[in-house]
Amino acid sequence: MEKIELPAIEENFETLMNFLEERVDQSGLNAENLMLLKIAFEEIIINVIHYAYGEGGGPICVLVDFLEDPKRLFIEVRDHGISFNPLERADPDIHVPAEERNIGGLGIFMTKKIMDSVTYRREDGMNILTMIEGITEE
């Protein structure tokens, strides 16, 4: 398992995205699924950067691993911020006309649709979001 821990600030966004990209590029996921994975990951880390901490700030920790039988990618995002389960946010109504659409909540909705599994737990004062994506050999 590989891990990165940094202050949860916008300046570290690119480093966090690169950390994931470098690990999943050779994972066997096709280009389409890699992009979807990046979208899901971006939503989760932005959520932590923007909402986990107040002015004092705090760390964000990302863990990436590859699991076997069946082959799948494991991503965990942890923070020590206020207790918050982003998965509880109501899904946006994607059927209303575009002119009436509220874009809020779209990112988490996309994450739930993209990943095979997204779960949240509060443990030891941490918000822990775990994402699993199956890898199909092509």
């Binding site: 992009m35 990046k38 971006e42 939503e43 002119e99 874009i103 990112g107």
Partner: peptide, 17 residues
């Protein structure tokens, strides 16, 4: 375009409106 997250999708809806 190589990649667009929900932030970009939000811009498209903004422009459409």
């Amino acid at each position: 375009l190589q990649y667009m997250s929900s932030a970009g999708m939000g811009v498209l809806v903004h422009g459409l409106k």
